[in-house]
Write a protein that binds this DNA or RNA. Structure first.
Lengths: 216, 216
DNA sequence: AAGAACCAGTAGACAGTGTCTACGTCCCCT
DNA sequence: AGGGGACGTAGACACTGTCTACTGGTTCTT
């Protein structure tokens, strides 16, 4: 047996059959959170294809059958890990958003944080946008990215009051995501000849929001 | 889904021995082509996650070790199948391109064909853009999509001679791809409220190419 | 023309996977 | 006390991808 952080889990009053009373996932000593954290560590260390159910259980120090109590299936566990990635991304965006700056600048910064995330946490990014995860409607993966989209929509509404902000934000969101994807799997070199997504991003921002206005 | 095992292949004999030592892929009788075709059928019928090496071999009517002679690893076989998807997509685009129409219209049509493909051949589309396939640089998956990009770049150069066509085409390509992705996994409903990618596409085209001009 | 070399496909083994089920083992509650 | 239920263990099962003999047919060499 292995116990990394033996935590005196006081009280387990959980009358409802839902399973875990810890509403937040990555919190404390509960196995559910430990599994998710082990998965996050694993995907960062070894990549997205290393996230086997048994390996995650191994890293969490439990037997291969244990995760089943908290995640009925492998995809559910992967979705929880990916969800952690989404909330983390949202936190980064929120942390780096200077609410006093001009909306145009805030959008550009949001986009840059997004691209930075895709570039630095490659495995997590790959996991977050795996088709089988998103498609299966598990968890609120799509809902988890909703606050991000709402933030973008609000900013777009300030920059382009003439157009439908939801439409413009959607198109810009898709553009941003596409740039991240192309960059992520190295197709950028073929397209633009360089590795830097910044020119593409600038072009996309100019296209959707209008050219950046010169500072007053 | 049903197996057609009535394949009259007795051993390895050519019907009349007219030199069918296929060195090319995609040929007719050779096992290599049969495997790829079986994979294409399978991904259309059952989805991308059903493409196990053994199941493809089963459908091709050979033992599970046979593919190894032609594809060293599973990913190589999957890449070949995905490559078939890319060439097929390119063929569709080329077939539906009215070379006499205005460039702006041809771009719009190209984009629509692309989106149609993503919508109709869902499994194949998912396979074509799997990160582990594209990332591993196997085959010329990225190179296979190069003609498509070149075609787009050429058209963009005609519509927007003022800007760097490679940059604009890259941004537009990324935008198109992002729209397809969002649509593909159903995030469009959350963003724009509808299922139709057409408004997003129109917005993207307007953004990158300028609003559609009324006939001069 | 006989033997060697070779190629394509077969069959079995192996480690690893996800899921299912039976079984302990605690702790809480009345 | 003792029952009940949540929690984790351990084994089985079917399946996967890869590796390694091994067989049969074809072709090249001498």
């Amino acid at each position: 047996m292995r116990e990394e952080t033996e935590e005196p889990r006081a009280g387990h009053s959980d009358p409802d059959g839902d399973g875990d009373d810890e509403g937040h996932d990555g919190g404390d000593g509960g196995l559910r959170g430990r599994l998710v954290r082990a998965g996050v560590d694993l995907v960062d260390a070894e990549g997205a294809q290393a996230l086997s159910l048994r390996e995650i259980a191994r890293r969490a120090g439990v037997s291969h059958g244990a995760p089943r109590r908290h995640f009925p299936t492998h995809l559910d566990l992967l979705s929880a890990i990916a969800g952690q990635g989404f909330t983390e991304l949202a936190a980064r965006v929120a942390a780096e958003d200077p609410e006093t700056a001009a909306p145009r600048e805030r959008i550009a910064l949001l986009a840059r944080v997004y691209l930075d995330y895709a570039g630095s946490r490659r495995g997590m990014y790959e996991l977050m946008f795996r088709h089988d995860l998103l498609e299966s409607g598990r968890l609120g993966l799509r809902e988890t990215s909703l606050p991000l989209f709402a933030r973008l929509t609000g900013l777009v509404a300030l920059v382009r009051p003439d157009a439908d902000p939801v439409l413009v934000a959607g198109a810009l969101w898709a553009n941003l995501h596409g740039i991240a994807q192309l960059w992520h799997w190295g197709s950028l070199r073929l397209a633009t000849g360089g590795d830097d997504p910044a020119p593409l991003l600038a072009a996309a921002l100019d296209a959707h929001l209008g050219p950046a206005e010169p500072a007053p």
